[in-house]
Design a protein around this nucleic acid. Structure first.
Lengths: 249, 249
DNA sequence: CGTAAAATTGATCTGTCTCAACGTGGGTGG
DNA sequence: CCACCCACGTTGAGACAGATCAATTTTACG
């Protein structure tokens, strides 16, 4: 029985038994938060790092005029800011997307992990993928139309969750609001609604009541020209015994 | 006489004399490339890291339909991919924006630098800022109109270059094409042209023949609600003796 | 059951795109 | 040293994706 955190790290580097003992201990005794709870606020200087164990969270920034941009989803196994200790303050906010279980990792634990080459390597790998994802999102918002953006995000989430064993075929739990999707795609909530309807009509994806259904993953990927390179995940996937983890509430 | 690389690192951490000796040696004997030369191509697995010493480069990705997205500018002192050794392949392309001088840093040199706490800290700091910049660009493209995007980018470049002593008041060299700006803002080249005209008419900025003039930096920042937090640069700046470095050709 | 949040619909307006043409300046070869 | 050329910038007109505003319906939860 391995935790989702260990499982995620093992996608990127093989861990020794003693490595694994450490990564297992880190995720124990999470705290539980309701959807919408702010985990870290812009301007904070947190004394620990959050680790998502169940559910999901997102990074965002809100402008003076009230418009919000979401620029990352944090899924089970994701560290919120592995290196926040280097910068002085958070420049964005992290909020619980769903009800979720989040472990707090102390500075000492982070240092202990970074002292082990395999764990450190896996954490860096994950960090680099986060950055690559950010670049891909910029392409998404800058150069794809709203329907392709939506399709692309869902392809990405599907692949990320599948690599952790959190999908069954083209289906996965992801309790997200249309307004939140709009802030992810850089469009209005009304338009997000119409876009989702259009994708549903084309039988490409169906999002309802917190779960996403993709009837034909290959077709959806073709539709938005999804190239999974940037996730550096394709041939990997969780093969270890799967501890059921929820994204819903 | 300190090199631009040393100067940039010293924005983030004080270096000892022996640290400085190392960072100075790394930037010596750069190679020279013409504007438009591809430094690293998507799919490559480079055996070294580029370090920009003079001029500028940019990261980009081109989609199947030919549309391109630029998601970072690499200025003097910037390492192109400090940690490319961890990932297997490049997921984007780096191209010379102007004629430029670029030093190649070997894996061994990178390891030597990362073994020194102060240098390592400064490099991580710079990397984190790059990531924060990416997030801000996502806000830019997703939630600001084209004029604000342009203004915001110019505020950012101005601050980054000023921190290195590469501006004189509101003026700096930056040889960029309107088509390249368009690919940075996620708009068409035609619209980029009209946007720049409008900013010029409003006396906010003037870009011409490779140099940018900002008559009133405060006014431009106000116009696009520029909040420099994310660059973690505000109170720092190059105070050491300034070795003239060119961005133009 | 009642209520608030979320989803849906319709109508109108606007920023930005596309296409197509034309101007301009600096570098190159004859 | 001039003429040409080509990349870059500029302009105009028409089309369209997506925004905005304003209801209305549906869903989830106390």
């Amino acid at each position: 029985m391995t935790s989702i955190f260990t499982r995620k790290l093992e996608l990127f580097a093989p861990l020794s038994d003693s490595d694994r003992k450490l990564t297992e201990s880190v995720g124990r005794n999470p705290r539980f938060f309701d959807a919408g709870t702010v985990l870290i606020h812009e301007g904070d200087n947190p004394e620990h790092v959050w680790l998502v164990m169940e559910g999901a969270a997102f990074r965002s920034k809100t402008l003076e005029d009230g418009s919000r941009t979401i620029f990352a989803f944090l899924l089970p196994g994701d560290l919120c800011d592995s290196h926040v200790f280097i910068l002085d303050t958070m420049d964005h906010t992290i909020t619980a997307l769903s009800d979720c279980a989040v472990a707090s990792v102390t500075r000492a634990q982070m240092i202990e992990m970074m002292d082990r080459p395999a764990i450190a390597r896996a954490i860096w790998f994950a960090t680099l993928i986060d950055e690559a994802t950010l670049r891909e999102w910029l392409v998404n918002v800058g150069r794809r139309n709203a329907e392709e953006r939506a399709a692309h995000l869902l392809c990405e989430l599907h692949l990320r969750l599948a690599s952790l064993g959190l999908t069954s075929d083209g289906e996965f739990e992801f309790p997200i609001t249309q307004a939140e999707l709009a802030d992810t795609f850089g469009i209005s909530a009304v338009h997000a609604n119409r876009v989702l309807q259009s994708l549903r009509r084309a039988n490409l994806v169906d999002i309802k009541s917190g779960s996403v259904k993709i009837p034909d993953v290959r077709k959806l990927r073709e539709f938005c020209k999804f190239n999974p390179n940037y996730l550096h995940l394709e041939r990997r996937s969780a093969t270890s015994s799967i501890e059921r983890t929820h994204l819903g509430r």
